[in-house]
Design a protein around this nucleic acid. Sequence first.
DNA 1: TTCTAAATGATAGTATTACTATTATATTTG
DNA 2: CAAATATAATAGTAATACTATCATTTAGAA
Lengths: 220, 220
Amino acid sequence: MNALNITVSDKLYIKNPDETELGRKILSKSIELLNDLGYEHFTFKKVGLAIESTEASVYRYFQNKHQLLAFLINWYWGWLEVKMANEFIVLNTPEDKLRKAIELLVYPMDQDERIPHINENQLQHIVVSEYPKIYLTKEVDQENQEGYFLGYKRICDTLSLLALQINPDFKHPHSLFATVIEAAQSQQFFVEHLPRLSDAKKGQKDIVSFLTHMTIKTIQ
Amino acid sequence: MNALNITVSDKLYIKNPDETELGRKILSKSIELLNDLGYEHFTFKKVGLAIESTEASVYRYFQNKHQLLAFLINWYWGWLEVKMANEFIVLNTPEDKLRKAIELLVYPMDQDERIPHINENQLQHIVVSEYPKIYLTKEVDQENQEGYFLGYKRICDTLSLLALQINPDFKHPHSLFATVIEAAQSQQFFVEHLPRLSDAKKGQKDIVSFLTHMTIKTIQ
DNA sequence: TTCTAAATGATAGTATTACTATTATATTTG
DNA sequence: CAAATATAATAGTAATACTATCATTTAGAA
Protein backbone atom coordinates (compact mmCIF):
# COMPACT_ATOMS: atom_id res chain seq x y z
CA MET A 1 0.00 0.00 0.00
CA ASN A 2 2.59 2.48 -1.14
CA ALA A 3 0.46 4.50 -3.51
CA LEU A 4 -1.98 6.98 -2.08
CA ASN A 5 -3.99 9.19 -4.31
CA ILE A 6 -6.24 11.94 -3.15
CA THR A 7 -8.59 12.82 -5.96
CA VAL A 8 -10.29 16.17 -6.32
CA SER A 9 -12.83 17.32 -8.88
CA ASP A 10 -11.25 18.08 -12.25
CA LYS A 11 -13.03 21.41 -12.21
CA LEU A 12 -10.47 22.47 -9.62
CA TYR A 13 -7.59 22.73 -12.05
CA ILE A 14 -6.84 23.31 -15.72
CA LYS A 15 -4.12 20.68 -15.81
CA ASN A 16 -3.67 18.14 -13.04
CA PRO A 17 -0.74 19.33 -10.94
CA ASP A 18 -0.23 15.90 -9.34
CA GLU A 19 0.83 14.44 -12.66
CA THR A 20 3.91 16.50 -13.47
CA GLU A 21 7.09 17.52 -11.73
CA LEU A 22 6.31 21.19 -12.32
CA GLY A 23 2.78 20.74 -11.05
CA ARG A 24 3.99 19.21 -7.82
CA LYS A 25 6.52 22.00 -7.41
CA ILE A 26 3.72 24.53 -7.84
CA LEU A 27 1.67 22.82 -5.14
CA SER A 28 4.57 22.53 -2.78
CA LYS A 29 5.72 26.12 -3.12
CA SER A 30 2.17 27.48 -3.10
CA ILE A 31 1.51 25.85 0.25
CA GLU A 32 4.67 27.42 1.61
CA LEU A 33 3.90 30.86 0.22
CA LEU A 34 0.24 30.83 1.22
CA ASN A 35 1.39 30.16 4.75
CA ASP A 36 4.02 32.85 4.75
CA LEU A 37 2.16 35.60 2.92
CA GLY A 38 -1.52 34.82 3.43
CA TYR A 39 -4.00 34.58 0.57
CA GLU A 40 -4.23 38.32 -0.10
CA HIS A 41 -0.51 38.84 -0.60
CA PHE A 42 -0.03 35.55 -2.45
CA THR A 43 0.37 35.86 -6.25
CA PHE A 44 1.18 33.53 -9.13
CA LYS A 45 4.06 35.78 -10.05
CA LYS A 46 5.68 35.10 -6.68
CA VAL A 47 5.13 31.35 -7.11
CA GLY A 48 6.68 31.38 -10.58
CA LEU A 49 9.66 33.26 -9.31
CA ALA A 50 10.14 31.03 -6.27
CA ILE A 51 10.20 27.83 -8.31
CA GLU A 52 12.36 29.45 -11.00
CA SER A 53 9.63 29.12 -13.55
CA THR A 54 7.19 31.75 -14.76
CA GLU A 55 3.85 33.23 -13.89
CA ALA A 56 2.49 31.97 -17.22
CA SER A 57 3.41 28.39 -16.33
CA VAL A 58 1.43 28.54 -13.11
CA TYR A 59 -1.54 29.87 -15.05
CA ARG A 60 -1.42 26.71 -17.17
CA TYR A 61 -2.33 24.66 -14.09
CA PHE A 62 -4.84 26.91 -12.34
CA GLN A 63 -7.17 29.61 -13.60
CA ASN A 64 -6.36 31.86 -10.65
CA LYS A 65 -5.34 31.76 -7.02
CA HIS A 66 -8.91 31.20 -5.91
CA GLN A 67 -9.05 27.93 -7.83
CA LEU A 68 -5.67 26.92 -6.44
CA LEU A 69 -6.83 27.55 -2.87
CA ALA A 70 -10.01 25.57 -3.52
CA PHE A 71 -7.90 22.73 -4.91
CA LEU A 72 -5.67 22.64 -1.85
CA ILE A 73 -8.55 22.76 0.58
CA ASN A 74 -10.41 20.00 -1.20
CA TRP A 75 -7.25 17.98 -1.20
CA TYR A 76 -7.08 18.51 2.57
CA TRP A 77 -10.64 17.29 3.14
CA GLY A 78 -10.03 14.29 0.92
CA TRP A 79 -6.95 13.44 2.86
CA LEU A 80 -8.71 13.89 6.19
CA GLU A 81 -11.42 11.54 5.00
CA VAL A 82 -8.81 8.87 4.32
CA LYS A 83 -7.28 9.44 7.75
CA MET A 84 -10.66 9.13 9.44
CA ALA A 85 -11.51 5.96 7.58
CA ASN A 86 -8.21 4.46 8.71
CA GLU A 87 -8.71 5.39 12.33
CA PHE A 88 -12.32 4.23 12.40
CA ILE A 89 -11.28 0.65 11.55
CA VAL A 90 -10.26 -0.06 15.13
CA LEU A 91 -13.07 1.93 16.78
CA ASN A 92 -16.37 0.31 17.50
CA THR A 93 -18.83 2.89 18.81
CA PRO A 94 -20.04 5.93 16.92
CA GLU A 95 -19.15 8.05 19.91
CA ASP A 96 -15.53 6.90 19.83
CA LYS A 97 -15.44 7.65 16.13
CA LEU A 98 -16.78 11.15 16.65
CA ARG A 99 -14.23 11.81 19.36
CA LYS A 100 -11.46 10.65 17.06
CA ALA A 101 -12.80 12.76 14.19
CA ILE A 102 -12.72 15.88 16.35
CA GLU A 103 -9.14 15.13 17.34
CA LEU A 104 -8.15 14.76 13.72
CA LEU A 105 -9.76 18.12 12.94
CA VAL A 106 -7.74 19.89 15.60
CA TYR A 107 -4.45 18.11 16.22
CA PRO A 108 -1.53 18.92 13.95
CA MET A 109 -0.88 16.51 11.16
CA ASP A 110 2.29 14.57 10.69
CA GLN A 111 3.94 14.49 7.30
CA ASP A 112 2.82 11.64 5.04
CA GLU A 113 6.03 10.51 3.41
CA ARG A 114 4.13 8.91 0.54
CA ILE A 115 3.25 12.44 -0.59
CA PRO A 116 6.43 14.41 -0.15
CA HIS A 117 5.30 17.46 -2.12
CA ILE A 118 2.43 18.22 0.27
CA ASN A 119 3.27 19.48 3.74
CA GLU A 120 0.11 18.42 5.57
CA ASN A 121 0.87 20.54 8.58
CA GLN A 122 1.26 23.73 6.58
CA LEU A 123 -1.83 22.80 4.61
CA GLN A 124 -3.81 22.52 7.83
CA HIS A 125 -2.70 26.04 8.77
CA ILE A 126 -3.92 27.27 5.41
CA VAL A 127 -7.29 25.66 6.04
CA VAL A 128 -7.50 27.36 9.44
CA SER A 129 -6.59 30.77 8.06
CA GLU A 130 -8.23 30.81 4.65
CA TYR A 131 -11.02 28.31 4.58
CA PRO A 132 -14.16 30.48 4.46
CA LYS A 133 -12.72 32.54 1.62
CA ILE A 134 -13.38 29.77 -0.87
CA TYR A 135 -17.14 29.89 -0.43
CA LEU A 136 -17.81 33.45 0.71
CA THR A 137 -17.93 34.82 -2.83
CA LYS A 138 -20.51 35.85 -5.37
CA GLU A 139 -19.49 32.83 -7.48
CA VAL A 140 -20.40 30.30 -4.80
CA ASP A 141 -23.46 28.83 -6.56
CA GLN A 142 -21.68 28.12 -9.81
CA GLU A 143 -18.60 26.78 -8.08
CA ASN A 144 -20.78 24.61 -5.89
CA GLN A 145 -22.17 22.98 -9.02
CA GLU A 146 -18.62 22.40 -10.22
CA GLY A 147 -17.77 20.48 -7.08
CA TYR A 148 -15.65 23.09 -5.33
CA PHE A 149 -17.06 22.09 -1.92
CA LEU A 150 -17.54 18.36 -2.25
CA GLY A 151 -14.76 17.47 0.15
CA TYR A 152 -16.31 19.47 2.95
CA LYS A 153 -19.81 18.22 2.26
CA ARG A 154 -18.69 14.61 2.35
CA ILE A 155 -16.98 14.90 5.72
CA CYS A 156 -20.08 16.61 7.04
CA ASP A 157 -22.28 13.76 5.76
CA THR A 158 -20.04 11.08 7.25
CA LEU A 159 -20.12 12.65 10.70
CA SER A 160 -23.87 13.24 10.45
CA LEU A 161 -24.45 9.52 9.95
CA LEU A 162 -22.45 8.76 13.07
CA ALA A 163 -24.57 11.20 15.06
CA LEU A 164 -27.74 9.53 13.83
CA GLN A 165 -26.38 6.19 15.03
CA ILE A 166 -26.18 7.67 18.52
CA ASN A 167 -29.57 9.35 18.36
CA PRO A 168 -31.75 8.57 15.33
CA ASP A 169 -34.14 11.35 16.32
CA PHE A 170 -31.52 14.10 16.30
CA LYS A 171 -32.81 16.83 14.06
CA HIS A 172 -29.75 18.88 13.14
CA PRO A 173 -26.84 16.63 12.22
CA HIS A 174 -25.64 18.56 9.18
CA SER A 175 -25.94 21.92 10.88
CA LEU A 176 -24.11 20.56 13.90
CA PHE A 177 -21.14 19.19 12.00
CA ALA A 178 -20.85 22.13 9.68
CA THR A 179 -20.70 24.14 12.90
CA VAL A 180 -18.22 21.80 14.61
CA ILE A 181 -15.91 21.75 11.60
CA GLU A 182 -15.96 25.53 11.31
CA ALA A 183 -15.46 25.93 15.03
CA ALA A 184 -12.51 23.55 14.90
CA GLN A 185 -10.86 25.95 12.46
CA SER A 186 -11.90 29.22 14.00
CA GLN A 187 -11.07 28.23 17.56
CA GLN A 188 -7.56 27.36 16.44
CA PHE A 189 -7.32 30.79 14.88
CA PHE A 190 -8.81 32.55 17.90
CA VAL A 191 -6.50 30.90 20.42
CA GLU A 192 -3.61 32.25 18.42
CA HIS A 193 -4.92 35.69 17.46
CA LEU A 194 -8.13 36.67 19.28
CA PRO A 195 -7.89 34.82 22.59
CA ARG A 196 -10.89 36.62 24.08
CA LEU A 197 -13.04 34.56 21.69
CA SER A 198 -11.96 31.29 23.24
CA ASP A 199 -11.46 29.73 26.66
CA ALA A 200 -8.79 27.40 25.37
CA LYS A 201 -5.26 28.14 26.37
CA LYS A 202 -2.56 27.49 23.82
CA GLY A 203 -2.53 23.87 22.85
CA GLN A 204 -5.23 21.88 21.15
CA LYS A 205 -6.49 19.85 24.10
CA ASP A 206 -8.93 22.49 25.34
CA ILE A 207 -10.39 22.98 21.88
CA VAL A 208 -10.94 19.25 21.50
CA SER A 209 -12.63 18.99 24.87
CA PHE A 210 -14.91 21.94 24.11
CA LEU A 211 -15.92 20.56 20.72
CA THR A 212 -16.41 17.06 22.05
CA HIS A 213 -18.54 18.29 24.92
CA MET A 214 -20.67 20.42 22.63
CA THR A 215 -21.08 17.62 20.09
CA ILE A 216 -22.06 14.89 22.54
CA LYS A 217 -24.43 17.13 24.51
CA THR A 218 -26.12 18.47 21.42
CA ILE A 219 -26.75 15.08 19.87
CA GLN A 220 -28.38 13.68 22.98
CA MET B 1 -34.90 59.46 22.75
CA ASN B 2 -34.54 60.45 19.16
CA ALA B 3 -30.79 60.43 18.88
CA LEU B 4 -29.04 57.09 18.59
CA ASN B 5 -25.34 56.93 18.12
CA ILE B 6 -23.41 53.79 17.49
CA THR B 7 -19.77 54.46 18.24
CA VAL B 8 -16.92 52.50 16.75
CA SER B 9 -13.19 52.77 17.42
CA ASP B 10 -11.65 55.81 15.72
CA LYS B 11 -9.00 53.50 14.29
CA LEU B 12 -11.69 52.30 11.92
CA TYR B 13 -11.77 55.43 9.81
CA ILE B 14 -9.62 58.37 8.80
CA LYS B 15 -12.47 60.86 9.09
CA ASN B 16 -15.72 60.00 10.82
CA PRO B 17 -18.26 59.28 8.09
CA ASP B 18 -21.22 59.72 10.44
CA GLU B 19 -20.47 63.42 10.77
CA THR B 20 -20.84 64.65 7.22
CA GLU B 21 -23.35 64.37 4.43
CA LEU B 22 -20.74 62.92 2.10
CA GLY B 23 -19.61 60.46 4.75
CA ARG B 24 -23.14 59.19 5.23
CA LYS B 25 -23.60 58.89 1.48
CA ILE B 26 -20.41 56.83 1.33
CA LEU B 27 -21.72 54.49 4.03
CA SER B 28 -25.11 54.18 2.47
CA LYS B 29 -23.86 53.45 -1.04
CA SER B 30 -21.08 51.18 0.18
CA ILE B 31 -23.60 48.99 1.96
CA GLU B 32 -25.62 48.76 -1.22
CA LEU B 33 -22.62 48.01 -3.42
CA LEU B 34 -21.06 45.51 -1.04
CA ASN B 35 -24.32 43.62 -1.17
CA ASP B 36 -24.62 43.75 -4.91
CA LEU B 37 -21.02 43.10 -5.88
CA GLY B 38 -19.49 41.28 -2.91
CA TYR B 39 -16.30 42.39 -1.22
CA GLU B 40 -13.94 41.21 -3.97
CA HIS B 41 -15.62 43.16 -6.75
CA PHE B 42 -16.29 46.21 -4.58
CA THR B 43 -13.97 49.19 -5.18
CA PHE B 44 -13.74 52.79 -3.97
CA LYS B 45 -13.83 53.93 -7.59
CA LYS B 46 -17.27 52.37 -7.99
CA VAL B 47 -18.46 54.02 -4.78
CA GLY B 48 -17.18 57.42 -5.88
CA LEU B 49 -18.88 57.05 -9.22
CA ALA B 50 -22.17 55.89 -7.72
CA ILE B 51 -22.44 58.86 -5.35
CA GLU B 52 -21.29 61.25 -8.07
CA SER B 53 -18.17 62.08 -6.15
CA THR B 54 -14.66 60.74 -6.63
CA GLU B 55 -12.48 57.85 -5.59
CA ALA B 56 -10.13 60.30 -3.84
CA SER B 57 -13.00 61.56 -1.66
CA VAL B 58 -13.76 58.08 -0.42
CA TYR B 59 -10.09 57.60 0.41
CA ARG B 60 -10.32 60.62 2.71
CA TYR B 61 -12.72 58.70 4.94
CA PHE B 62 -11.24 55.20 4.85
CA GLN B 63 -7.74 53.91 4.25
CA ASN B 64 -9.02 51.08 2.09
CA LYS B 65 -11.99 48.80 1.61
CA HIS B 66 -10.82 46.47 4.33
CA GLN B 67 -11.08 49.28 6.87
CA LEU B 68 -14.50 50.23 5.54
CA LEU B 69 -15.75 46.68 5.89
CA ALA B 70 -14.37 46.51 9.43
CA PHE B 71 -16.12 49.77 10.23
CA LEU B 72 -19.46 48.52 8.94
CA ILE B 73 -19.21 45.21 10.75
CA ASN B 74 -18.27 46.89 14.02
CA TRP B 75 -21.17 49.23 13.54
CA TYR B 76 -23.40 46.19 13.14
CA TRP B 77 -22.21 44.57 16.36
CA GLY B 78 -22.59 47.84 18.22
CA TRP B 79 -26.09 48.20 16.96
CA LEU B 80 -26.94 44.59 17.83
CA GLU B 81 -25.65 45.21 21.34
CA VAL B 82 -28.07 48.12 21.71
CA LYS B 83 -30.90 45.97 20.39
CA MET B 84 -30.10 43.19 22.82
CA ALA B 85 -29.92 45.56 25.78
CA ASN B 86 -33.35 46.91 24.83
CA GLU B 87 -34.90 43.49 24.54
CA PHE B 88 -33.32 42.21 27.74
CA ILE B 89 -35.11 44.86 29.81
CA VAL B 90 -38.35 42.91 29.82
CA LEU B 91 -36.75 39.45 30.12
CA ASN B 92 -36.02 38.00 33.52
CA THR B 93 -34.14 34.74 33.13
CA PRO B 94 -30.74 34.34 31.50
CA GLU B 95 -32.17 31.54 29.38
CA ASP B 96 -34.85 33.83 27.97
CA LYS B 97 -32.19 36.40 27.21
CA LEU B 98 -30.03 33.88 25.39
CA ARG B 99 -33.00 32.73 23.35
CA LYS B 100 -33.73 36.30 22.39
CA ALA B 101 -30.09 36.98 21.55
CA ILE B 102 -30.05 34.04 19.16
CA GLU B 103 -33.20 35.29 17.49
CA LEU B 104 -31.64 38.71 17.03
CA LEU B 105 -28.58 37.11 15.45
CA VAL B 106 -30.66 35.29 12.87
CA TYR B 107 -33.90 37.13 12.17
CA PRO B 108 -33.82 39.91 9.60
CA MET B 109 -33.57 43.40 10.95
CA ASP B 110 -36.13 46.09 10.41
CA GLN B 111 -34.99 49.51 9.31
CA ASP B 112 -34.25 51.92 12.15
CA GLU B 113 -35.69 55.19 10.96
CA ARG B 114 -33.47 57.17 13.30
CA ILE B 115 -30.52 56.12 11.12
CA PRO B 116 -31.79 56.48 7.57
CA HIS B 117 -28.40 56.16 5.89
CA ILE B 118 -27.81 52.62 7.22
CA ASN B 119 -29.92 49.83 5.81
CA GLU B 120 -29.71 47.36 8.69
CA ASN B 121 -31.07 44.50 6.66
CA GLN B 122 -28.50 44.88 3.91
CA LEU B 123 -25.84 45.32 6.54
CA GLN B 124 -26.82 42.02 8.11
CA HIS B 125 -26.40 40.33 4.73
CA ILE B 126 -22.93 41.80 4.47
CA VAL B 127 -22.07 40.40 7.89
CA VAL B 128 -23.30 36.96 6.81
CA SER B 129 -21.34 37.01 3.57
CA GLU B 130 -18.16 38.82 4.48
CA TYR B 131 -17.63 38.62 8.18
CA PRO B 132 -14.62 36.29 8.52
CA LYS B 133 -12.69 38.29 5.94
CA ILE B 134 -12.01 41.06 8.41
CA TYR B 135 -9.97 38.89 10.75
CA LEU B 136 -8.60 36.18 8.45
CA THR B 137 -5.62 38.25 7.37
CA LYS B 138 -1.95 38.54 8.17
CA GLU B 139 -2.64 41.93 9.77
CA VAL B 140 -5.02 40.51 12.38
CA ASP B 141 -2.76 41.01 15.40
CA GLN B 142 -2.09 44.67 14.72
CA GLU B 143 -5.70 45.37 13.84
CA ASN B 144 -6.83 43.58 16.96
CA GLN B 145 -4.77 46.02 19.01
CA GLU B 146 -6.41 48.88 17.15
CA GLY B 147 -9.86 47.67 18.17
CA TYR B 148 -11.00 46.23 14.86
CA PHE B 149 -12.81 43.37 16.63
CA LEU B 150 -14.08 44.98 19.79
CA GLY B 151 -17.74 44.84 18.76
CA TYR B 152 -17.61 41.09 18.30
CA LYS B 153 -15.66 40.49 21.48
CA ARG B 154 -18.11 42.49 23.55
CA ILE B 155 -21.15 40.60 22.33
CA CYS B 156 -19.33 37.37 23.02
CA ASP B 157 -18.53 38.52 26.58
CA THR B 158 -22.11 39.58 27.24
CA LEU B 159 -23.51 36.22 26.20
CA SER B 160 -20.82 34.37 28.14
CA LEU B 161 -21.91 36.07 31.34
CA LEU B 162 -25.49 34.94 30.75
CA ALA B 163 -24.31 31.36 30.29
CA LEU B 164 -22.41 31.51 33.58
CA GLN B 165 -25.59 32.65 35.31
CA ILE B 166 -27.22 29.45 34.14
CA ASN B 167 -24.29 27.23 35.01
CA PRO B 168 -21.39 28.85 36.91
CA ASP B 169 -19.26 25.76 36.32
CA PHE B 170 -19.51 25.86 32.55
CA LYS B 171 -15.99 25.81 31.21
CA HIS B 172 -16.28 27.09 27.64
CA PRO B 173 -18.54 30.16 27.47
CA HIS B 174 -16.39 32.25 25.13
CA SER B 175 -15.69 29.37 22.80
CA LEU B 176 -19.37 28.49 22.77
CA PHE B 177 -20.61 31.95 21.86
CA ALA B 178 -17.90 32.63 19.34
CA THR B 179 -19.09 29.36 17.81
CA VAL B 180 -22.78 30.24 18.06
CA ILE B 181 -22.29 33.67 16.53
CA GLU B 182 -20.27 32.26 13.65
CA ALA B 183 -22.76 29.47 13.15
CA ALA B 184 -25.58 31.99 13.09
CA GLN B 185 -23.88 33.64 10.13
CA SER B 186 -22.67 30.56 8.30
CA GLN B 187 -25.93 28.63 8.66
CA GLN B 188 -27.74 31.54 7.04
CA PHE B 189 -25.25 31.40 4.19
CA PHE B 190 -25.44 27.61 3.88
CA VAL B 191 -29.24 27.48 3.76
CA GLU B 192 -29.06 29.82 0.81
CA HIS B 193 -26.01 28.48 -1.03
CA LEU B 194 -24.77 25.14 0.33
CA PRO B 195 -27.90 23.48 1.70
CA ARG B 196 -26.18 20.14 2.27
CA LEU B 197 -24.35 21.82 5.15
CA SER B 198 -27.56 22.55 7.02
CA ASP B 199 -30.77 20.82 8.01
CA ALA B 200 -32.68 24.08 8.05
CA LYS B 201 -35.10 24.67 5.26
CA LYS B 202 -35.43 28.18 3.96
CA GLY B 203 -36.55 30.49 6.69
CA GLN B 204 -34.77 31.36 9.89
CA LYS B 205 -36.85 29.34 12.35
CA ASP B 206 -34.91 26.11 11.91
CA ILE B 207 -31.60 27.87 12.38
CA VAL B 208 -32.80 29.48 15.58
CA SER B 209 -34.04 26.21 16.95
CA PHE B 210 -30.80 24.43 16.12
CA LEU B 211 -28.67 27.14 17.72
CA THR B 212 -30.90 27.38 20.78
CA HIS B 213 -30.87 23.64 21.27
CA MET B 214 -27.09 23.48 20.92
CA THR B 215 -26.56 26.43 23.27
CA ILE B 216 -28.82 25.23 26.08
CA LYS B 217 -27.59 21.64 25.93
CA THR B 218 -23.95 22.64 25.88
CA ILE B 219 -24.21 24.98 28.85
CA GLN B 220 -25.84 22.39 31.08
C1' DT C 1 15.69 6.93 -34.53
C1' DT C 2 12.97 10.29 -36.02
C1' DC C 3 8.78 12.75 -36.11
C1' DT C 4 5.20 14.88 -33.62
C1' DA C 5 2.88 16.66 -29.97
C1' DA C 6 2.92 18.53 -25.65
C1' DA C 7 5.06 21.15 -22.02
C1' DT C 8 7.71 24.80 -20.65
C1' DG C 9 10.35 29.25 -20.87
C1' DA C 10 10.81 33.89 -22.24
C1' DT C 11 8.82 37.89 -23.16
C1' DA C 12 5.36 41.34 -23.97
C1' DG C 13 1.20 43.53 -23.37
C1' DT C 14 -3.51 45.05 -21.32
C1' DA C 15 -7.07 46.40 -18.13
C1' DT C 16 -7.97 47.03 -13.48
C1' DT C 17 -6.90 47.91 -8.81
C1' DA C 18 -5.18 50.35 -5.10
C1' DC C 19 -3.55 53.75 -4.05
C1' DT C 20 -0.86 59.03 -3.73
C1' DA C 21 -0.39 63.75 -5.13
C1' DT C 22 -1.66 68.29 -6.77
C1' DT C 23 -4.34 72.08 -7.63
C1' DA C 24 -8.60 74.53 -8.05
C1' DT C 25 -13.00 75.50 -6.28
C1' DA C 26 -16.51 75.42 -3.01
C1' DT C 27 -18.17 75.70 1.76
C1' DT C 28 -18.02 76.43 6.52
C1' DT C 29 -16.53 78.73 10.70
C1' DG C 30 -14.66 82.26 13.64
C1' DC D 1 -14.82 88.90 5.44
C1' DA D 2 -10.72 86.08 6.04
C1' DA D 3 -9.00 81.75 6.97
C1' DA D 4 -9.42 77.15 7.29
C1' DT D 5 -11.39 73.08 5.68
C1' DA D 6 -13.72 69.99 2.50
C1' DT D 7 -14.45 68.50 -1.89
C1' DA D 8 -13.87 68.01 -7.04
C1' DA D 9 -11.08 67.19 -10.88
C1' DT D 10 -7.34 65.30 -12.68
C1' DA D 11 -3.06 62.88 -13.13
C1' DG D 12 0.07 59.53 -12.15
C1' DT D 13 2.36 55.11 -10.21
C1' DA D 14 3.21 50.39 -8.90
C1' DA D 15 1.23 46.10 -8.52
C1' DT D 16 -2.13 42.67 -9.80
C1' DA D 17 -4.43 39.59 -12.68
C1' DC D 18 -4.48 38.12 -16.31
C1' DT D 19 -3.80 36.85 -22.06
C1' DA D 20 -1.01 36.08 -26.06
C1' DT D 21 2.87 34.75 -28.83
C1' DC D 22 6.67 32.26 -30.14
C1' DA D 23 10.87 29.69 -29.37
C1' DT D 24 12.81 25.79 -27.17
C1' DT D 25 12.94 21.61 -24.69
C1' DT D 26 11.15 17.16 -23.53
C1' DA D 27 8.45 12.95 -24.07
C1' DG D 28 6.02 9.57 -26.52
C1' DA D 29 4.62 7.01 -30.74
C1' DA D 30 5.73 5.22 -35.31
